[in-house]
Design a protein around this nucleic acid. Structure first.
Length: 592
RNA sequence: GGCACCGUAGUUCAAUGGAUAGAAUAGAAGUUUCCUAAACUUUAGAUGCAGGUUCGAUUCCUGCCGGAGCCA
């Protein structure tokens, strides 16, 4: 970074010349000067006082004097306790800003890093519709993929659908028994919801059977295993694995409904995938790896015939990778799938799994096994772990029906957006489909921003009784600011290049400094796989812009050079707001 | 039992070991002949407890209390 490099270089020289200190660059801690003090950047002088054998104030003063004498870019300094606040010249900031007025400011050229990264997210089951937890997963994965792309990486977005197993058979069986041939078309129910309905129905009937068996005197555990429905579902799974045509046809039909339903939700959320994997294609992968692991003596056979790996030396436990009956477990598939992907995409450098933090142990084990099997890329596998979305009375649990349905919540957001928009009455002249699109933009923007502004790693609380805000630190607040900027720019007509001599006022300077920060925010966000940094930055930029907009007129400014500067600032702030929001998967409207 | 995580205003969230712990919302009080008031301004309010390391701790270490998780 321009200013940081310049400051670091001069400070290094100053420390050497004044005190004979060969400072390490990481000891030169430069931060943004806090608002209550004068200055642009602040150096913490404490690390040097021992070697300098002077008080923090003296060190600050000495270094400040040195900087001013060395380069005219540094115009002023002041020292408060151990903090040296340095001001940079008007010229410097203007010159910087002139170079920053580009559309893709802060982005590295796509592919310039030479790295290819696969980001997996969503990864749903096909037996139930998506809920709020899935939304967090989806927009987090999508956003992180976008953010990594700004750092010059090639990105592959993938989805892995869990489309087989006993849970699917439960839905299928319940539909066969109680469905009367109902389809999404005949019922008007979205496909994934229809299948979910029968998953719930299965559970209901199954519980009834268990209760009956228990009342006949069977122990509960036995009853759970012997209920006719569960036996039938297990038979169905066996038939599926044997390739029974009737079962497979039903499976295809019902999964088709679910995919249609998911596609709709993905489209509403504005996310997409470069490739979708299906577990029905990949669930047998990894079995042959077990033999390889045995040959390499990474795995061992246990007395009961199962195969395991001992990870106790790494602080983990023994992990079974093949059951005694020869069937594989989840981790076996995951091993196989990972290896397959690196074969399929030889240029792949990194594989990111967007999965909840309840599976942290699973991924630790997975990556460790891959490493022990000798795959060098195992080090580059990353579990993008995020916290659960909790309701006021605890975690969401599909089986207990305590979930916030994704489609319902989105519809609610859209109608709230519609209602608010109508109340404010600013959308004269909008066509019907434009209005619909606007409600969607605002509603989903509120929801996505709500979820991405918080640290992805932490669990978050969602209270269905309190609607998601549209005022304050929210998506619509930022969208609104963008719309105001576009309105001003639309009225301004032609703009000219800014005058390099124009004097900046406090808020103009503040805005340029924020523009200066954007690229490092992108880097930080990419490095930590955390979109919340971008969300918080955009919010700060927006807030500052609103203050500027309130205090200083742009279009009515009589001094033409100042007016042009303000227009340029408005334009670039708008551009960054738009780019930042797009990285979060949020659209911004030109009017609202 | 073992492993890792969390605890900040009434509430929901911020704070690469740095200055007087920031916001939003709810509360109180204001701003409209002026580029969109979904905005702006003012005000009140918080680091679970006890130690330790450090010039400096919300952040690192130890113990306790409280909350959720994974592996058995």
């Amino acid at each position: 970074m321009l200013a940081h490099g310049l400051l670091t270089q001069h400070l290094k020289q100053a420390l050497k010349d004044s005190y004979g200190i060969d400072a390490d660059e990481k000891d030169i801690v430069l931060q943004k000067t806090r608002k209550e003090f004068e200055g642009d950047f602040t150096l913490v002088t404490f690390p040097f006082i021992k070697a300098a054998k002077q008080s923090p104030e003296q060190v600050g003063d000495t270094l400040g004097k040195f900087l001013l004498a060395a380069n005219s870019t540094f115009t002023k300094y002041n020292v408060v306790k151990g903090f040296l606040n340095i001001s940079l010249s008007n010229d410097f900031w203007l010159q910087f800003f002139s170079g920053a007025q580009i559309e893709n400011y802060g982005y590295k050229k796509e592919g310039s890093s030479g790295k290819t990264i696969m980001v997996e997210y969503s990864s749903p089951n096909t037996n139930k519709p998506l809920h709020l937890g899935h939304i967090r997963n989806i927009i987090l994965g999508y956003s992180v993929a976008n953010i990594l792309r700004t750092q010059g990486h090639n990105i592959l977005k993938v989805n892995l659908v869990n489309d087989r197993g006993i849970h699917i058979c439960k839905s299928m069986l319940a539909w066969q028994k109680f469905g009367n041939g109902e389809t999404p078309q005949s019922s008007g129910i979205k496909g994934d919801h229809l299948v979910g309905k029968y998953y719930v129905e299965f559970d209901k009937q199954y519980k009834k059977e268990i209760a009956e068996l228990v009342s006949q005197g069977k122990p509960k555990e036995e009853a759970e295993k012997q209920a006719p429905l569960i036996l039938e579902a297990q038979q169905m799974l066996q038939k599926w694995e044997a390739g029974d045509k009737e079962v497979k046809d039903l499976w295809k039909k019902m999964n088709g409904w679910v995919y249609d339903g998911f596609a709709t939700t993905y489209s509403v959320l504005g996310v997409d995938f470069d490739k979708t994997y299906y577990e029905s294609d990949t669930y047998l992968l990894g079995k042959e790896l077990v033999q390889e692991g045995l040959d390499k003596k990474v795995f061992y056979k246990k007395d009961n015939g199962s195969v395991a790996i001992d990870l106790s030396a790494d602080g983990l436990d023994e992990k079974i990778v093949l059951r005694s009956d020869g069937t594989s477990v989840y981790i076996t598939q995951d091993i196989g799938t990972a290896i397959e992907r690196f074969k399929e995409f030889p240029q792949l450098n990194q594989l990111i799994y967007t999965v909840g933090n309840e599976q942290e142990y699973h991924f630790k084990v997975l990556f460790l096994i891959l490493q022990k099997l000798g795959y060098a890329w195992a080090k580059e596998c990353y579990h993008l772990s995020y916290g659960m979305v909790e309701l006021p009375d605890g975690k969401m649990k599909s089986r207990e029906g305590t979930v916030v349905d994704a489609d319902e919540l989105l519809d609610e957001m859209f109608s709230t957006a519609e209602q608010t928009t109508k109340e404010l009455g600013k959308v004269e002249g909008f066509a019907n489909d434009e209005l619909k699109h606007l409600y969607k933009t605002i509603g989903s923007g509120a929801l996505k921003y709500f979820m991405l502004k918080v640290d992805a790693k932490k669990k978050m609380l969602f209270d269905p009784k309190e609607s998601i805000d549209f005022n304050g630190n929210t998506g619509p607040f930022i969208q609104y600011t963008y719309a105001r900027i576009q309105s001003v720019l639309g009225k301004a007509g032609e703009t000219k290049a800014i005058d390099p001599k124009v004097e900046l006022n406090e808020l103009e300077r503040e805005l340029i400094k924020l523009v200066y920060e954007f690229p490092s925010v992108l880097e930080e966000s990419a490095k930590t796989y955390n979109p919340s940094h971008i969300a918080n930055y955009i919010y700060e930029l927006t807030k500052t812009f609103n203050r500027f907009y309130h205090d200083h007129s742009i279009l009515k400014e009589e001094n033409e050079t100042i007016k042009q500067l303000r227009l340029a600032l408005a334009k670039q702030c708008g551009q960054i707001i738009k780019n930042g929001m797009n990285l979060l998967g949020i659209e911004v409207p030109n009017r609202m």
